[in-house]
Write a protein that binds this DNA or RNA. Structure first.
Lengths: 192, 192, 192, 192
DNA sequence: AATGAATGAGTGTTCATTCAT
DNA sequence: GATGAATGAACACTCATTCAT
């Protein structure tokens, strides 16, 4: 447990640094300083900076996926499922703003890293899971016809966009206050 | 004119580098190499790397704003205006994918730079102009009631999201092929 | 001990460079080359060039202060004390000409650096110590009345001036050969 | 006259910069900015930075030499001559503190430059002139016997030292207030 | 005599990473 | 598992100087 928490300390320290100065401007030394770990320990656990970034990224997206999974258990209609995609996202972002900001800005970097394939695989699973959940409703003709990548953007795009702005301090409105509105808009936009 | 083109050469070279290896990984030396300018000339014209980035950013957003302005002249209904916001965006992104990718990923950086205020001012103008164009229709109750920052995300969010995915090579569908669909979705989402 | 000698190697290499080409013209690369240390090690130990300069400066003035302290133990008259100030100075300069040249030319620079306060404190101690040693004789009226900063210049000024010229190779006479003369002149100039 | 004043403007601007940030830290750009001249003009008049430094140096020492020359006309005793060396120096430094500070710190640099020989020649003249003025008194045995380079340091050393400290803001006493005292000490120190 | 855009070698410094202990 | 001194390639940027106009 002390091992697990040491790794976690490092990850949390990294996130704090990323939030304050950005991923690129964060140095290993800053993370070391903040986590209390030694440089050697840091490299022992993660191997290099890129892997710290990837680990933090994957842990975050994993949390969101888990949240979604829980929600699916109770979602018993097309509308509930679509809205769940939005509300789960908003709930997680509102609860983990720093983590969300990091994830929103580091996808390309992780994709390009040696761990890109691992991320790809996780995404495949994630989207596959959603697709499977919605397949029945789609077969019943409950959704507008559109390409599936478009479908995804139509549902989550407004939330992504608003969340980005909110996380950057560019909105007057709180993210949580748009929860129902954005869920409703998503449903309105894709229902047949 | 030789001066303008020298500055422009540098900007184009910078964009090409940003596209290939990313903004952070691009070195001044790469830009120098690609533009054919000397390091001294580069610094003579821009002063530092951050200002090259900001100049490129502001030139790009300026182009989109100009495109929008042209469109407003012909848009004679609420629906036309809303759709214009989407189609102008998509058209510009489709025509300038590298530039768009750069802008989509560098906003925070420019905001945080010494030129952040200039960007802020440009944004104020941009949003003010849109707001002014829509004010009459809004007064007629043609739009759903929602906070204005939400309104913006609802309209452009799906396009932003899809454009990001398209630019990253993550979509099967072409951006241009979603032009009408995304415009229609935007209008459906905000009309009263 | 290996650590101490590594830091010392760097300091000695720096002094040799300063002597040969001057402080400003000395590059970190030259010091690295001469000391055998790596650039990283150099920065690990000193942090920056200014701190190398300050460390060398303070080590030198510290040696002179120590020499003076030893002398005070045996100086049992006003005349002996005044002459000691001169002879200690001349002895140290004659024994460490490069170091002395460096110190004579870098005071302003160290004062202006981030370590200026540390130098100030060292000077306060140094002058306080001298003042304390002479206080008794002064109370006995053994010295000419004059402002204390003038008093200091009258005693050490000729030695400073001659040492500067000697170190620059501008004298025919050797510094050591003026030892007694300058000590005697100092005493003649301040005795009541 | 406009030519002369342009060169002078540059020299004055250079001195102001040297005073504020030091000779090494002063860039040609700073001098250009402050003098109002263009870079081209600056190089047209002086050729390079080293020659600006040397010109300023030689102009300053020339002024002191002229002052001394005037004084010699009225000095009719050994004591008056020795005191004149001190008072002329102090008067010039008190009247031109920035210039004096520059000269006190740049001698080595000018000596090492391509104009070192010119400085050497000027010095030869300067010291020769003083020597000649004192030769008669020396022949009469009015001075203590000592090497001539020592003799010079004994006379002017306290003034150099005090002036350095005063120029650096390290004294409580004003330089002008020590004028007579330092002149008297100089005479006391060398008179037979 | 004046201008200022252009040049490019050279600088101090950073920082991810290694490895002996 | 932990430590931190050591490494050195790489970077953004500076600045004296040139030269065509």
């Amino acid at each position: 447990m002390s091992r697990a928490s040491r790794k976690d300390d490092i990850l949390q320290a990294a996130l704090a640094c990323f939030t304050e100065v950005g991923v690129d401007a964060t140095t290993i030394e800053m993370i070391r300083d903040r986590s209390g770990a030694s440089i050697g320990s840091l490299y022992h656990h993660f191997g290099n900076k890129e892997r710290i970034i990837a680990a933090l990224y994957l842990a975050g997206t994993g949390q969101y996926a888990a949240l979604l999974e829980q929600g699916f258990a109770a979602a018993d209609s097309a509308e509930a499922c679509i809205k769940l995609l939005v509300t789960s996202y908003i709930d997680w972002v509102a609860a983990n703003p720093d983590w969300a900001r990091f994830i929103l800005h580091s996808r390309g970097r992780v994709e390009a890293s040696e761990l890109g394939e691992q991320l790809h695989e996780a995404n495949r699973l994630h989207y596959g899971r959603i697709h499977q959940e919605l397949a029945g409703y789609r077969a019943q003709g409950l959704f507008k016809a559109m390409p599936s990548d478009c479908f995804a953007s139509v549902i989550i795009g407004p939330s992504h966009d608003f969340a980005r702005n909110w996380l950057a301090g560019r909105t007057h409105t709180q993210l949580a206050d748009c929860r129902e509105l954005l869920a409703q808009v998503a449903w309105d936009s894709v229902k047949a």
